[in-house]
Nucleic acid binder design. Structure first.
Lengths: 225, 225
DNA sequence: TGTACATCAGTGAACGCGCGTTCACTGATGTAC
DNA sequence: TGTACATCAGTGAACGCGCGTTCACTGATGTAC
């Protein structure tokens, strides 16, 4: 990205309109296409996003995207990769090195997970539901691994509070928490999709589930606060 | 093609074929379309299934399906409904009224969940991933509710083994187990999709997760056997 | 500082394709009498 | 038992549409000199 010297992200494009980067051809088509994809995926799901419509959204001819992506799949993979990067940062910020203690931080991590799935449905779809094989792209896989690593480190910090003899495998614990968080996000976490009514918020459901789970591991979680 | 009276279904059509009710026009086009949809969804995901191709698969003209389904979505909803019915039966059989004890039966239930997701990916996709709103169809919703009821009853049976004072809400417990099972199925449970390598089988992961969870509830599960 | 030139992002026209959907139709079926 | 008729499942041709993809092109940019 950012490859003319004088920058060009001064204004933003789609959504509220405002053609920013004027000057020459388009300026920052690659970014514009990514943003168009995010918008379209959010509106119509990962399947309802076409190369042609992304081009239209960005205000260029249907042939223009081929200058930046081999095909639709490559664009989707790029969206997924960026999604993992944002996801990693979001989770890492929530975890905050386990402050003030791993239990509280893990609770925050869970909430951040669901918040991401809800507020960034397009990223989340591209990452987990669009059928993008993680091996498409070494960078995609690496980004996914880095995001998962945040969760794994959190699990390690939690198990470290247990006496050395009775520590469960942190990797397994991370996988359990990931699975439950993903399950809740997929089944109940998004606005209109697969709407099943819940007697509580997804956040409450996950928080309760993690509490029970951690208790099952022998962790005395202080709970929130 | 083929519209003389004899002929017609002598040869088998889709998959393992065997078109039953031969005789006249097609005989059982509705069923044939459902089976075509299952095949196509299994091969190419819920998005890669078109009305026209289902018709081709069933060997009829592209206009024929309109005699049986208003549109693609209605067909998809029907697939989902049938999926929930099969799912309910599968889960109920695995639960087997909680024999020989709820702990063992719950373990079986979890394995049956994952087995269904793996062996019937088309049903599973239509049910949970195709974006079919459950309210499309009262029957669809009812079928989904009945399938979930199996899980809820299992949770009730498990909580009933606890002293009256310390019973967690069975509904919440059912939701937790469902979420974890769905999360594992979605992230790790299918062959090629979203392949993430695991240091264990999905079944082992779910079994371990349920064990920890149940322990957290204070349930002394005997474990398998 | 100015000019010529290579680079390359985006154009616009064109194509083949498969999809969804409609329409008047046809041929098989079941049934009333 | 036979005949006339209503019903209805499936036909096949047709349509408009949007997509993916290609192509020779053009016009803006950066840069070597």
């Amino acid at each position: 990205m950012s490859w003319s010297k004088s920058d060009r992200d001064g204004t933003d494009r789609e959504g509220a309109g405002r053609d920013g980067p004027r000057g020459y051809h388009h300026g920052n088509l690659k970014e514009a296409l990514i943003r168009a994809a995010l918008e379209l995926i959010a509106q119509k799901g990962p399947a309802g996003f076409t190369f042609a419509e992304a081009a239209r959204w960005a205000g260029v001819s249907p042939a223009a995207p081929y200058r930046h992506f081999r095909d639709r799949d490559e664009l989707m993979a790029d969206v997924a990769r960026r999604g993992f990067e944002v996801f990693e940062q979001t989770l890492a910020r929530a975890w905050d090195s386990g402050r003030p203690n791993p239990g509280v931080a893990m609770d925050r991590l869970g909430k951040a997970y669901l918040a991401f799935a809800r507020s960034e449905p397009a990223y989340y779809s591209a990452m987990f539901e669009a059928g993008v094989p993680p091996d498409t792209n070494p960078e995609l896989r690496a980004a996914g691994d880095r995001a998962f690593a945040v969760l794994r480190h959190a699990a390690e910090a939690l198990t470290a509070t247990l006496p050395a003899g009775s520590r469960p495998p942190a990797l397994m614990m991370a996988l359990h928490i990931w699975s439950m968080a993903h399950g809740i996000a997929a089944l109940f976490g998004r606005g209109d999709n697969a709407r099943r009514s819940l007697p509580m918020t997804p956040e409450e459901l996950l928080e309760a589930g993690m509490l029970v789970y951690l208790q099952g591991l022998g962790l005395r979680t202080a709970g929130p606060g």
